[in-house]
Every structure is written in structure tokens, then in C-alpha cells.
Write a protein that binds this DNA or RNA. Structure first.
Length: 554
RNA sequence: GGGUCUGUGGCUUAGCCAGGACAUAGCGCCGGGCUUCUAACCCGGAUGCCGGGGGUUCGAAUCCCCCCAGGCCCGCCA
């Protein structure tokens, strides 16, 4: 309804003013939609904007196509306010199952996210990638796109060689109950300590990398074993966070099936290519200073070469290619895009997010300086269990445990997704453990409240008459949800969805305190119950899109 | 040094790309509200030269230039 009315009003304003861009936006507190086109016309017509706004408002309000929308000029602004029948329509739409879903769209999308190196567990920096990526994935599916989510497993990098060397030489045993990824990190950290003590080991690592690139069976088997062990642990963590990948793509496959060699051949034919002891591309024409090296002097490929092969493959199999990457990949991401373009391939769209650090500085798997996602989940779940036990002591323990797990994921995911990706952040335990306003649990709580009211209400006949300030504000906000899903996907900004859900919870809580539902009667009661149900459904759909459980009880 | 992102009340943060109506909200602080639909809640109050300086514009947190501060990047690592 909202998007339809937006386009209708835009059309009417265009017809009325002759302007292409009629400067139509959401009107905030003032209106559902508002235009500042009068300012623009004031210049060419040399007349005061308020005069022009008044004229436009008058002409448009005379048009029967307008329907149940009130137009008024407030000074130079032209405001459009939805009338009662549109508010009723908004609530009716918000009651539909899968509210916010868009019709199927044709473009096949591949979204890559997380793709952390399998040399240790995911830490609080990695899961910013996971939460942004998984939320976008859910939003894309809601927006109607056929989507595949991929994790690119770097299984032949230097750090894997180090892990493999560590397994062979350090004799560290796996502890009881130790997750594979944490075990791998322990070996990786210890191996790095050895390398610091004895630099000759570096040559052994180089040798391992040459062997794996040549496809030496024993070395490949060892690398795969280490990577699998770590990846299993990572998958467990991803599942606990509610993030699902459709496919894990192994980097070494692109070497094995010959795609990397084909990239070498194609790059070599580029006018920008240079071949001495290495193969490199001169991207100075694209604004990059340094050589973009794709083949080492020992003949092996580097990460960038394999990434070119991977993205070439993605470009051939999908219409849109999207990567979620940390800001430390900005340069290499831009070089990748530039080189793919030179090769005539599709360049990916990249969503960058800035770094998460600890109060004491940057995180480092190699130095063992990080807060793992597993530890974070454990701590937050323990706190959530305490909270739910205080509030709902009568619930059986297994139910409290289950609620605590959902609340913990909500707290963690929301805490991450609510911040714009371009902001760098410092991990903070106090904020991570906060379940109050502007948190995931706060939104879950609003949803549970709505469920509770509906449960107590029993049968009722829906009505749709909204008059109080709080009812009207809620209905207006409900109408915007499909547009927010669209905007999230178009701008690749998942925090828009986070803000929307929080605002809806805020409005619902205010309504809850001012407008009694069960104690009202007749059409008011039926209208408010329908509104509560519509809010419940919309909160549920937005929480689901954020990867947060919509609890009925907490 | 070059590139890039960020800088909004004590702290965290929205708005910036597509310039307009009193700059968004939370935490913290002060003061209220639970025999009433779940108080993980609500209401009121104090707190802002939107990093600094120029410019463009009828109008700048938003666009342009310079400067300052911080993060990240600048490897035959990934």
C-alpha cells in the first residue's frame, strides 16, 4: 500500500509541476509523505515557495484520484496524510502471512559472507561479517530473489600450511570436549611461536605450499583434514548464531580443476600484464600503485589468483555477485573488481564493514588475542538464563534454557546489526550483556507481549478503526515494512531493518501503556486486537529477517 | 608519505550517498509510574558551536576545499 501510494503521489506531483524529481520523502512526524518541490520551483518561478506549495496542495486535493489522502501545505512543505481507510488497509495487509515478502524476481544472486580462514574459531570480529551477511541473505529472500549463500574456504593458504606443520611436529593432543576449531587455533598459535623462535621453519612451510599446489596427495590430505576439523567447528558456531550457508566452496578446487591455470593464461594476454620471474598486472591505469602479483617466482598462485578464478565462476553462474568483506580487504577487493573488469568478467558488489577491536587493541588469531564467538554465546546465554529465571521462575528449566538461547542470539545479532557497517567498533562486554532498550531482547519482548494479549483475548471479530495518536502512529509504521525490506536490499544496508523493528517495538510499547486493549469494548476492542495482531505479525517477520527468534513467551 | 573510513550531549548511536520543518534514539544522571493486557516496560527533566576553518546555496550535520584526531590498508600473506 505504502509503496503504491508513494508512486501515485509522485506521479501526481510530476503531472502537476512538470518536474521530474518532485523531492518526495517520508514525512516523519508531520505526514506520511512530504515534498519540498516548492523550494525548487520558487527559484525558476521567482515566487515564494509557500505560495507555490499552497497552489499545488489545492490542485492536488481537487483531484479525485487522490482518494483517502489529505493534502495540505504547511508553509513551503506539501504534506500528505493517509486517511482512515488507508490506515485500515495498512493493518489488513500487515495481518497477512509472510507480510513484507515481495513477488519473485528473476535475478539469481550469490552472496558470500564470513569466509574466515579455517585456522581457528570465529571471533567477535568475524561474526560482524556473519550477521551482516546472514541478515542481507534473509532480506534478499524476503525481497523475492533466488539466492545462494556461500562460504569460501581458504584451504591452501600459508596459515593452513602452518597448522598442518604444527600437527606434524608439535604433538599437541586434542583436549576432552575441545571443539575442532579451538584445537586448530591452539596448534596454529603454538606453531607460530615455533616459527618466531626458528625462522628456518618458514622454508618448510613454503615447501608445503608448493607441494599442495602441485597436488601432492599426502600434503593435500593433511591440509584437508586440518581444514575440515576447523570448518566443522565453525559450522557449529554459525548454526548456533542462526546463520546458514548453502555451499562451502573449497579454494583448492579452483587449482585442482585447472581454473587457476586458465586465469594465468587469460591474464597473460592482457595488455596490462607483465611477465618476469613473476606474473603481475599493472593496474596503474585503474588507480592502483603497486604491482598486482598473481604468480610467484616459484610458479605457485597467490590468494588473489584463486579469488579471480572463484569470482569468474560466480559471475558465470549468477546474475548478481555480492561479497561481504572486512574493511581490511578494501584495496584487494578493488583490485579484484578492476582485474575482473579487464578480463571482461562480472565484478562483484562488495559490502564492506569496518573493524571490531578489543579495548586493548586489534584482535589476532595468531597471537591468541581474541574473544571467540563461542565464548561470547556462552556468557550471554548464561546471563540470559539468570534473567529469565528471575522473571519467570515458574517456567520449567528446559523452557528457560531454550528462551535463554534465543535471547542470547537476539542480543548478539542485534547488537551487531544495529550499527552502520562503516563504523568501527570496540567490543564491549557490558553492551553485549545488555538486554534493555535498543536491544534484540527488547524487540522480542514487545512481540511476546503482543502474543500474550492475543492469547488472553480469545475469539474476536476484526475491525479497523484507528483514532488515537498511538493507534495511528502504529498503523502508519506498519505500512512501511515492505518498503524497508526493499530499501535494505537495494542499499545493502541491513541496519535499516534493525532500526525499523526497534521503532515498531517503541511505538507498540507506548500504545500498550496508553490504550487499553482487553479492557476496551466493542469496535474499539476489536480494532485494537486487530492492530495488536498486525504488530505481532510484523514484528515476527522483521525479527525473522534479522535472524532472531520471535518468542511467544519470555 | 599515499589511499580509505570515521569524528554528532559524559558514553553509544540515527540522519549524510538522493541538502529543507524544532538533529534521532538509547545508556548514564535527576524526578515520576507495577492490587490494572508480561516493568526485558512507560512518562517527564537537564545535557549538542553535528571535530575545526573556509566555500557553494534562499537554506548545510548532509555537497566542495583545506586542516586536526583516530581506525584500517599500502607483502612473491590471506
Amino acid at each position: 500500500m505504502f509503496q503504491e501510494k508513494y508512486h501515485q503521489i509522485e506521479r501526481m506531483l510530476r503531472a502537476c509541476t512538470g518536474e521530474e524529481d518532485v523531492l518526495l520523502t517520508t514525512g516523519g512526524d508531520h505526514a506520511d509523505l512530504a515534498s519540498t518541490v516548492a523550494f525548487k520551483l520558487a527559484k525558476s518561478e521567482k515566487r515564494p515557495p509557500r505560495e507555490i506549495a499552497a497552489e499545488i496542495a489545492e490542485r492536488i486535493s481537487a483531484d479525485p484520484e487522490l482518494g483517502d489522502i489529505r493534502v495540505e501545505a504547511t508553509g513551503p512543505y506539501i504534506n500528505f496524510v493517509f486517511g482512515p481507510s488507508l490506515l485500515a488497509e495498512a493493518v489488513r495487509e500487515a495481518l497477512e502471512p509472510d507480510y513484507g515478502n515481495h513477488p519473485r524476481r528473476p535475478e539469481r544472486v550469490v552472496l558470500e559472507h564470513t569466509s574466515a580462514n579455517p585456522n581457528g574459531p570465529l571471533h567477535v570480529g568475524h561474526i560482524r561479517n556473519t550477521v551482516i551477511g546472514d541478515t542481507l541473505a534473509r532480506a534478499f529472500r524476503k525481497a523475492g530473489y533466488p539466492l545462494e549463500v556461500q562460504y569460501y574456504l581458504n584451504d591452501m593458504g600459508r596459515q593452513i600450511a602452518i597448522v598442518s606443520w604444527g600437527f606434524d611436529h608439535l604433538g599437541l593432543a586434542r583436549e576432552d570436549g575441545e571443539k575442532g576449531d579451538h584445537y586448530v587455533a591452539r596448534v596454529y598459535i603454538a606453531a607460530n611461536r615455533e616459527i618466531e623462535k626458528n625462522l628456518a621453519i618458514t622454508e618448510e612451510i613454503d615447501h608445503l605450499m608448493q607441494k599442495v599446489e602441485r597436488g601432492d596427495a599426502e600434503t593435500v590430505r593433511k591440509f584437508r583434514a586440518a581444514v575440515s576439523l576447523c570448518a566443522e567447528g565453525i559450522k557449529t558456531t554459525l548454526a548456533a548464531l542462526g546463520a546458514r550457508h548453502d555451499r562451502f566452496v573449497w579454494e583448492s578446487d579452483f587449482v585442482r580443476i585447472g581454473d587457476v591455470d586458465r586465469i594465468f593464461e587469460r591474464v597473460r594476454r592482457l595488455p596490462q600484464a607483465h611477465e618476469d620471474e613473476t606474473l603481475w598486472v599493472d593496474l596503474s591505469g585503474e588507480g592502483f600503485e603497486k604491482k598486482y602479483i598473481l604468480r610467484r617466482s616459484d610458479g605457485t598462485s597467490v590468494y588473489s589468483t584463486r579469488d579471480l578464478a572463484y569470482h569468474t565462476w560466480k559471475g558465470h553462474n549468477y546474475d548478481r555477485v555480492i561479497d561481504v568483506l572486512g574493511a581490511d580487504h578494501k584495496l584487494i577487493g578493488a583490485q579484484l573488481q578492476a582485474t575482473l573488469t579487464l578480463l571482461g568478467e562480472k565484478a562483484p558488489e562488495i559490502v564492506f564493514f569496518e573493524f571490531v577491536s578489543l579495548p586493548e587493541g586489534s584482535m589476532s588469531t595468531r597471537a591468541g588475542k581474541f574473544v571467540s564467538a563461542d565464548d561470547l554465546l556462552d556468557e550471554v546465554t548464561a546471563k540470559a538464563f539468570d534473567e529469565v529465571t528471575v522473571r519467570r521462575p515458574e517456567l520449567p528449566e528446559d523452557e528457560r534454557r531454550s528462551i535463554a538461547r534465543s535471547v542470547a542470539v537476539a542480543a548478539i545479532r542485534y547488537d551487531i546489526v544495529k550499527v552502520s557497517p562503516e563504523k568501527s567498533t570496540v567490543f564491549n562486554w557490558k553492551e553485549a550483556l545488555d538486554f534493555e532498550r535498543q536491544s534484540g531482547p527488547y524487540i522480542q519482548y514487545a512481540h511476546a507481549r503482543a502474543c500474550s494479549i492475543l492469547e488472553k483475548a480469545g475469539e474476536f471479530t476484526r475491525a479497523y478503526r484507528y483514532e488515537t495518536e498511538h493507534e495511528v502512529a502504529l498503523a502508519r509504521h506498519l505500512a512501511k515494512f515492505p518498503a524497508v525490506v526493499d530499501e535494505t536490499v537495494e542499499e545493502l544496508r541491513p541496519h535499516l531493518l534493525a532500526a525499523y523493528a526497534r521503532e515498531l517495538a517503541d511505538l507498540f510499547n507506548a500504545f500498550y501503556h496508553y490504550d487499553p486493549v482487553l479492557k476496551s469494548g466493542g469496535e474499539t476492542r476489536n480494532s485494537r486486537l486487530a492492530l495488536v495482531d498486525a504488530v505481532r505479525n510484523t514484528l515476527q517477520e522483521s525479527l525473522l529477517t534479522l535472524g532472531i527468534d520471535a518468542l511467544r513467551n519470555m
